[in-house]
Simulated assay, not measured.
Amino acid sequence: MEDTKQNRSELKDSLLGYFLADLILVERNPNNEVYQPPLPLKGELAWSIPSAYTAFNGDHFALVPLMRKYAISQGRLPLNPESIVGYRDSVLAYQSKSGVLLADIAALSRCDEMWIFSTALPALESVGSLAEGVAVELLFYLENRRRQGNESAVYWVDVNHLVADSVTPALAKLNFPVDLVRRVLSKDNPEVVSFVDRILGGSQALPRVAFCLHDPLDSKYADWLGAGAHLKGYVPLVPSKAIELGDGPTDLVLFLWLGLLRYADEVWSFPSVETRSLSRFQSFLGRIAIEHLGMVEIPQSWAEFDVPKIKYGDSWPLTARERRPVALVRGIQ
C-alpha cells in the first residue's frame, strides 16, 4: 500500500494510527505481494482465537505482564482482570470487594478458558486454599459453563515458572467436577458459594463491558478511560491496556485487539485528541464492530473523563507553544 504525506493528510490521521491500521488491514501473500483480506474474514479469524481468563492471587500482581505474554505464546487471547478491570480504579468506584469481583466476573463470563496462576499444587485439595477472589471465579466459571451447556477448560500454571528462565511453564489441565469444587468450597469458604449463587440467581447483576476505542496516540489517557468507565457502571475494555504492544509481535497484538471486540457489549469511540476525528485504525475497528458484530458505537466526550489537557485547559501547559493545541483540543468538546 502506497504511503504518502498526501494520503495521511486526507485521512486526518496520526502517523501511529495510520501505520497501525496498515499492519492490521494489510497482509502479504506467499509471493510477498501486498493485499487486503475481506474485513469479515479478518474478524472471523480474530474471533476464533480461544480466550483465557488469567486468574491469580493478588500477591503475584507484579507478574501480570508475564501472564499475558505466556497466554499469547500458547495461542490464547488473554483477559487479565488487572489489565482490564484495574484493581485500584474498581475499588475507588465500587468501594466494596463484591463490586470489584462483579466487574472481574463480567470479563470472566465471556471467556472460553480459565487459567489459574498459583504456587499451590494443581489438585482438588488446593481449591480450598485459593485466594477468595480466585475461588469465586473458579466456581462461577464452572457453574456458568455448565448452565450454558459448554465444556469447561481449567488450566493450572505454576506462577514460579514465569520468572525462571531455565523452565518453560507447563499448562496442567484440571478435570474438577463442579459439584466437587462446590462441596470443597462449601466446607472451607461457604461465603464464596453463597456469593456465586447470588450472581447465578440474578440478585447480583454483572456490569456491562464497554470497548473503549481511541487513537493509539491517546494511549496516555487510557487510565482515565478505565476510571471513568467504572464510574459510569461499566467494565472498561481498553485495548492498549488489556494487551500491550510489547506483549508480542506488533501485528499479532493488533490482531488480538480486534479479537477483544467479541467480549464487549458496546463500543465507545473517542475522537483523536490531536486531529479531532477518528483515526483510520479506529474507523476500521468501529466498522467491524457495527457491520459484523451488530454492536452499537457510542460517541464519547473526553471532557467526561477528566483528561488533564481538557479539564485544566490553558492552565495546564507551561509554554505558549503548547497552549494553542490545547485550545484546539478543548474545541472538540
Rank of each mutant, 00 (worst) to 15 (best):
D3A: 10
T4M: 00
Q6T: 11
S9W: 11
G17H: 05
V26T: 09
P30N: 06
P30F: 08
P30A: 05
N32I: 08
E33F: 08
E33R: 10
L39Y: 14
P40N: 09
G43E: 15
P50N: 04
A52C: 13
A52D: 02
A55L: 04
F56W: 12
D59Y: 06
V64H: 01
I72C: 12
P78T: 09
L79N: 04
P81V: 04
E82C: 06
V85D: 01
D89H: 11
L92M: 09
L92E: 11
Y94H: 05
D104Q: 01
I105F: 00
A106Y: 01
A106M: 02
S109V: 08
S109P: 08
M114D: 06
S118I: 03
L121Y: 05
S126W: 03
S129A: 12
L130W: 02
E137C: 11
F140R: 01
L142T: 03
G149P: 00
G149L: 01
G149C: 08
Y155M: 05
H161V: 14
S166R: 14
V181P: 09
L185A: 02
N189P: 08
V192Q: 01
V192N: 03
V193G: 01
S194C: 06
V196P: 00
L200R: 00
S203T: 14
A205P: 07
R208Q: 14
A210Y: 03
F211H: 02
F211T: 00
L213F: 02
D215P: 04
K220T: 14
A222I: 07
A222S: 15
D223L: 15
D223A: 15
V235C: 03
L237S: 01
K241L: 15
A242T: 00
E244P: 08
E244F: 09
E244S: 13
G248S: 13
G248K: 06
V253I: 14
L256K: 06
L261C: 03
Y263G: 04
A264C: 10
D265T: 04
W268H: 12
W268P: 03
S269T: 13
S277T: 12
L278W: 05
L278H: 06
S279K: 09
R280A: 13
F281R: 07
Q282E: 11
Q282G: 05
I290K: 14
E291C: 14
E291V: 14
M295V: 08
W302V: 00
E304K: 07
P308Y: 02
S315K: 06
L318Q: 15
T319K: 15
V326L: 02
V329F: 09
R330C: 09
Q333P: 14
